[in-house]
Design a protein around this nucleic acid. Sequence first.
DNA 1: TTATATTATGAAAACGTTTTCATAATATCA
DNA 2: TGATATTATGAAAACGTTTTCATAATATAA
Lengths: 335, 335
Amino acid sequence: MLKKDAVTIDDIAREANVSISTVSRVLRGNVKVSDSKREAVLTAVAQLDYQPNVFARGLASGQSMAIGVLTQNFGSPFYDAILQGVVKGLYGTDYFPIFADGQWQPEIEYEAIMAMVQRQIDGLIIIGGFMTSNELSQLSTQIPLIMVARQVPDFEDHCIYIDNATASFKATKYLLELGHKRIAHISGRADHPDAAARQQGYEMALEEAGVDIIQGLIVEGNFRRQSGVLAVETLLSRGISFSAIFAANDQMAYGTRLSLYRRGIRVPEDLSLMGFDDEPAASFMIPPLTTVRQPAVELGQEAAKVILARLRGETVSIPRLEAELVVRESTRIHQ
Amino acid sequence: MLKKDAVTIDDIAREANVSISTVSRVLRGNVKVSDSKREAVLTAVAQLDYQPNVFARGLASGQSMAIGVLTQNFGSPFYDAILQGVVKGLYGTDYFPIFADGQWQPEIEYEAIMAMVQRQIDGLIIIGGFMTSNELSQLSTQIPLIMVARQVPDFEDHCIYIDNATASFKATKYLLELGHKRIAHISGRADHPDAAARQQGYEMALEEAGVDIIQGLIVEGNFRRQSGVLAVETLLSRGISFSAIFAANDQMAYGTRLSLYRRGIRVPEDLSLMGFDDEPAASFMIPPLTTVRQPAVELGQEAAKVILARLRGETVSIPRLEAELVVRESTRIHQ
DNA sequence: TTATATTATGAAAACGTTTTCATAATATCA
DNA sequence: TGATATTATGAAAACGTTTTCATAATATAA
């Protein structure tokens, strides 16, 4: 809180020889004021370096001009990229983002959202997370709400996401086209819908190609790097041969890569490796990772756009974004 | 903003048969209230699910209970880890962090800080950035302020940082101990004091060991991955031989690694590679990166602790944190 | 020209708290 | 027991805006 006693609207009113109502009107710009008075107010504002008090404004108007943004983990590249998109999308508007971190834990997520709601945010952008369809519907009656990077059933008109199954299908199909038949899959955490969708896409592609789905080639991870390491151990211990691994996100692909390196298994000479997300770091993996690109920044930017529009009372429909295969050097034709 | 008309302190007062003053006193807990009334108020609060209005509170008390946190870039692992530390340090207190992103651009940084100050934050944590010593001193007369991960001259009692020169000295010394004499250095961006300090530590270590500093082995990067790639090109084009590279941060080390991979130069067999920061991803580089660990989470956590204490009016001194060498597999004895 | 509609403006109420100030109730002391 | 100090409490002012309402000034229509 600034210590110097702030300039208030009263000071401006006195300086400009008008009432505080007029000052307010000039500042908000929603009601007509004569040019001469407007002029006077504006110069007074500039002269005294007036900064409106956010609390007084919020209290009187019932608007905070803040958008709450819930991420799951500061430091997760994919989520951070979405954050960046939101920042970008809000930049230059009167709205200000307030961030909170759900830390991939349902209770913390709930608390964080409530803390933001209590802080009177005007809109809420939730990135991923665990809120159920019911909870979200309930919440969205209270506050404009957009869900990013997650497809919640019965809530699709609030969700900006790419179709995980389709994207995953593309990735798997590419591996099949390279001649791989035994493709292992490291899935995301079981309680996460995205993980299920990605696994589904993988299985669909295999089916379509007439390749048997081998349960022993599917192993559950948790979207974190370390789980990729463990998954390789598990996979190898099962003794079923395979020529490619499709990890449900890039992070697990990095873990996988490390595990393979430790065992002297070369990528892509001995084994092809496919990720999912296309984080910025993916192109710096050794070798650069073939993956499916989720347009993260765009997702965030679109979320900001949509919520802004809805706040203005416009009815906009959710844009559909597509994932795109990014071929790099971690995959090659199966000999 | 919640649509259902909120429960106010008046409702509680009515329900509990006390005045609103008493309700406020119970809620704030700073003034004694008889047990019976306290009881009554508390049950009413629970029953009606009362949520205090942040704006009214802020307006009346002059406190926002918010701490502004300025980062330089969502998505930068090192900064994100500090953010996490701040979140951790604030968790469970009455204070709530508000984040903004300076995007490594002085003007945006300034704007973002002003936006937060205008939002009446009670304290400010700035991570890195470009504010000058003067600007910071000026700002800190207005608001409690802690600078993290940057050492600003004449402002040290507000700065939580590790000694970059010493840390860098350690790293270089380790390479020297491995028998490397020709050690290239990829520095950070020239306008950044940390970059200068790290280069200084590198030079000090060489001097101490009686090894000549060769200007041709020093090349300027900008702390980003891509600049590591370019640095290797530059270095090789100069035709001066070297057996180790010390990059001023991990990100540039990744870029370096990729560039070497492309040229078929093996790490660590042909060349040792040293980073700086120890981001979480460093241990997943191929091969795992030897680096200097900045205790990022701890830095953030300490920043939160210190600012909280100062907000309570306590005079606490800044803790000193040490960087620590983390030896992994990207370095080896020079043959 | 007069009656009526429109416009710009200021006064004052509202927003929901915290906190000062006054006072009734109670405790403490001689 | 009476006088005084202490305590708990409520009334009311304050925080700095926005917005409703009333009104004076002006434009428009007959």
